[in-house]
Design a protein around this nucleic acid. Structure first.
Lengths: 122, 122
DNA sequence: ATATGAACATTATGTTCATAC
DNA sequence: GTATGAACATAATGTTCATAT
């Protein structure tokens, strides 16, 4: 059953984009963060490091993504983690539920727009 | 300056509807709550008493609405508070800023829809 | 300095308790 | 029981600290 909740949470929104990035492959945490920060800059939204990591960790724990440690080339020997998409059936089912929440959220906000900002006639 | 925030908060959303109800006049807290709960039922959203009261109190404190105690007819002698719109100029300015946040939020969610659920061709 | 991650702090919101009629 | 409101508890998110290279 649904809870009587307001609109979609940031966490769910980010996880959607994490899956998107994982489908493309080849990206690690801080890269994803930076990509998203740039991508949403025009809309005044700057996701934080902690939300991005938490999103990735949840997806990993639940099997939606896998990851692989990579030793960076060069003198630094830095370990980072490349994320890849996990069980595609599971991911699809998950994305379906998120889509429903997204649609619902948009409907709610558009109703507010209509109710509170439409020109009154007469 | 804007903060780098995600989407509009429930509180702001509710305050918009509170102003809407106050413009119509003649309504008190629990009536507004019940109206909104019914109105949003189809979208799976059920605002709580506490959020509605907090919204009204904030609007009152900031001068966007006024209120007047009313003694209910009948044997109960119940005191309730009818809310009315306050300074119309101030209210208009406030609503303009909320509209910007609403527009931005809708844009963000629609972008997520487009990026994550559009059919890939080929 | 870059990368990952946890700990800690603060907001935002929901649930329960108190008071009055 | 209805209405208002505060107190309290939890969820969601943001900021700072720790570790390693």
């Amino acid at each position: 059953m649904r809870k009587n909740t307001f609109i979609i949470k940031q966490r769910a929104f980010l996880k959607l984009y994490m899956l998107h990035e994982a489908e493309k492959g080849r990206l690690y945490g801080l890269q994803i963060l930076e990509n998203l920060q740039n991508y949403f800059k025009d809309l005044g939204y700057k996701p934080t490091k902690s939300e991005v990591y938490k999103s990735l960790h949840e997806l990993l724990k639940d099997g939606y993504v896998t990851r692989e440690p990579i030793i960076k080339e060069g003198a630094e020997m830095q370990t980072l983690y490349i994320y890849r998409i996990g069980d595609r059936e599971k991911v699809k089912a998950y994305k379906d539920t998120v889509k429903a929440d997204l649609d619902r959220s948009i409907a709610l906000l558009q109703r507010a727009l209509k109710d509170n900002y439409s020109q009154k006639r007469g």
